[in-house]
């Protein structure tokens, strides 16, 4: 703990003021506003909002379209997380052996993180387009084999692949950093005891990677619930027949296309609760259960 401090509290107030002001206006106010809207309903002919308690939520929870969106989002979140983390973990474990070409491999596996979501979306929309490029050949060889424009599950597959592609690098960077923070003496001791590389991977590196693993699990799931807008909007616009209408996209559609602020706010609140509880689980349970060295 620090013992030497400056005494002038006026300066302290002055230096924290800008951040507090900005987060008040652009974070706390909007978040509380979302709460207010979620519990009120705008009057059709003006005249302020009417307090309706849980009516907006009740309406949402009885709406099939909302449940469909939840289902689709869950599938998307689980599938992208599994694909991205699985691939990242395997790549990190082998990259960490630091054979020849390690540095080039590392760069080659990191850069996708920097690609903008709409660019990824557009690229994959082209690649999977049933009437142009590579996928069109598949359709030519096997008619009606692939059609993400009309077929919901094909569209979903396409969105998941793009989403996973976007996430791989992030997890890879963290797995690699986690692996490199494992004390070298441990692996060396194991090697002295005659453990071969694969054995060391299984019995030393993987178990010691558990904290990183759970951290990434929560971050990836949260990210795929909240950060999927760019991909969905450029690839499918939520279609066909709402098959890829993820929760964030539905909030946007209802709020800005449908101008249903109360409904969108209620959906925002549910998503907020979901994200907050995931973060809470992360801090409360995962960080405690998992043992660090």
């Amino acid at each position: 703990m620090r013992r030497a401090y400056f005494k002038n509290n006026w300066i302290a107030a002055l230096v924290v003021a800008p951040q507090l002001l900005i987060i008040f206006v652009f974070f706390y106010w909007p978040s509380s506003q979302a709460l207010y809207w979620a519990f009120t309903l705008e009057q059709p002919w003006g005249g302020g909002n009417e307090w309706v308690w849980f009516e907006n939520f009740a309406y949402l929870l009885s709406d099939d379209r909302y449940w469909q969106s939840v289902r689709v989002s869950t599938v998307y979140a689980l599938a992208t997380t599994a694909l991205a983390m699985g691939m990242a973990l395997i790549l990190a474990l082998f990259a960490d052996r630091q054979l020849r070409g390690y540095k080039s491999f590392r760069i080659g596996l990191i850069w996708p993180y920097a690609v903008a979501a709409p660019a990824i979306g557009l690229a994959f929309r082209f690649i999977f387009n049933p009437s142009a490029g590579v996928a069109s050949y598949l359709n030519y060889a096997f008619p009606d084999f692939w059609d993400p424009i009309m077929n919901g599950s094909h569209a979903m597959t396409m969105v998941i692949i793009a989403g996973a592609w976007k996430q791989v690098s992030y997890s890879f960077i963290f797995f690699l950093a986690g692996l490199q923070s494992i004390p070298r003496s441990l692996t060396e001791a194991a090697a002295m005891d005659g453990a071969r590389p694969m054995r060391r991977m299984m019995d030393i590196q993987l178990p010691l990677l558990t904290p990183t693993f759970f951290f990434l699990l929560v971050i990836n799931i949260t990210d795929s619930f909240t950060d999927s807008f760019g991909i969905v909007d450029t690839m499918t616009s939520g279609g066909p027949a709402r098959a890829t209408n993820l929760m964030v996209y539905k909030i946007y559609e209802d709020g800005f296309r449908g101008l249903d602020y109360s409904g969108a706010a209620a959906q925002s609140i549910i998503l907020m609760i979901l994200v907050i509880s995931l973060t809470f689980i992360q801090f409360r349970y995962v960080e405690r259960r998992v043992h660090y060295t």
Binding site: P30, A34, D227
Partner: peptide, 12 residues
């Protein structure tokens, strides 16, 4: 904890 996407409508 709450990314911009989640509170997009009121932030707008």
């Amino acid at each position: 904890m709450l990314p911009l996407e989640v509170r997009i409508v009121p932030t707008y």
